[in-house]
Amino acid sequence: MKLTLRYLLAIILALIAAPLSADELRPAVIELSEREVDEWVLEWKLPVAATRAQSAAPVARPVFPQVCEAVGEPVQRAAALALQGRQQLRCTGDLAGQTFGLSELLGSADAIARLIPLDRPTQTFRLTADAPTAQVLAEPDTGQVLRDYFVIGAEHIVFGWDHLLFVIALVLLVRAPWAVVKAATAFTVAHSITLVATTLGYAGLPSRPVEALIALSIVFLAVEVAVVLRSPERRTFTRRFPWAVAFAFGLFHGFGFAGALAEIGLPQGEIVSALLAFNLGVEAGQLLVIAALAGLLKVLTRAVPKAETPVLRFATYAIGITGSFWLIERVIG
């Protein structure tokens, strides 16, 4: 029982120790586009690790096909925790079978690579630490787009800390498995509406108030969890209508998803497929988090019942403090 308690506390401490830059879906992006026959431009945006921000050291270097040669010197400039660059290229022959991408990707980082020819469909690839370069295909692969954007959507829940903490707080508050699943589905439907509307240009909100409202949603749920822990019989608004609260806040989380997805971009000609796969990935990620947390809570309740309330109170205050920090930072920062 002591070992189980140690594992649970270790998981909670890992969440607290997570980076306070809430949204971790900020992958590198590299794009190879044809401007004229045999004339290409390689553009990249490489995130900078927070601990290396002052030296502006990127996590990777761009790699272009062997049949291409650089024209002039690359142009680079520092942006907010990122390095943006541009290189003119002259390429001879067919690029099919050639590779381009990044020299390396550290840890669990991902990147998006896009090839944009003049007279053929765009090709989009997801790069990983094991495969930091992509091989240009003779014809684009829709299945690849579906797979890649599904994984990106799932990762956005698992590694996007603000969305993740919202789902965790929702589970801690509602507890009943079926009610949690219905609330999470309402959350998915809501953020899908605003994500699609924003991506297609029918809606949009400035990122700063959206990020503040996302932080507020975490604080709101943390307060309700704290109230329920003090008075277990208390029927708060969210406990009575979890799906309605999840749907309402999900609309704002959708704008946040859209902002992150805008940085990655969507493949022309495959926008519908990519959006569908991304949303299915988000739902799969949510269900995975819910299942894992529900299992941990069940183990906690059975193995160390006396520790349940202290552990949950500790987790709730940690979530509330983190959400409050993000809220203050986004309002006055």
Rank of each mutant, 00 (worst) to 15 (best):
M1R: 13
K2S: 15
L3R: 14
Y7V: 15
Y7M: 15
I11L: 15
L15K: 01
I16G: 15
I16L: 14
S21I: 03
D23E: 12
D23T: 07
E24H: 04
L25G: 01
R26E: 05
R26H: 09
A28T: 03
R35T: 14
V37R: 14
W40N: 05
V41F: 05
K45Y: 01
L46H: 03
L46M: 11
P47H: 05
A57F: 03
V59I: 12
V59H: 05
V59F: 03
F64Y: 15
C68M: 09
E69Y: 05
A70M: 10
V71W: 05
Q76E: 15
A80N: 14
L83D: 09
G85F: 13
Q88M: 11
R90Q: 12
D94Y: 04
L95Q: 04
A96T: 12
S103Q: 07
L105D: 07
S108G: 09
I112T: 09
L115M: 12
D119T: 12
R120Y: 08
P121H: 09
Q123V: 03
T124L: 06
L127V: 02
D130F: 05
P132W: 03
T133W: 06
T142H: 06
T142A: 14
Q144P: 02
V145E: 00
R147T: 01
V158S: 01
D162S: 05
V167K: 00
L173F: 07
V174K: 02
K182R: 15
A183P: 07
V189K: 12
T194G: 09
G201T: 12
Y202F: 15
L205A: 13
R208D: 11
R208G: 08
E211T: 07
L213M: 14
V219H: 11
A222W: 09
V223M: 13
E224M: 09
L229A: 12
R230Y: 11
R234L: 14
R235H: 10
R240L: 14
G250S: 08
F252S: 06
F252V: 08
H253V: 07
A262W: 03
E263Q: 06
Q268R: 10
Q268N: 05
Q268F: 04
E270W: 03
S273W: 07
L275H: 00
L275A: 00
L280I: 10
V282F: 00
V282Q: 01
E283S: 00
Q286K: 01
L288C: 02
I290L: 01
A294H: 10
K298A: 15
V299H: 08
P305L: 12
P310S: 10
A315R: 11
G323D: 04
L327W: 04
E329H: 11
R330H: 02
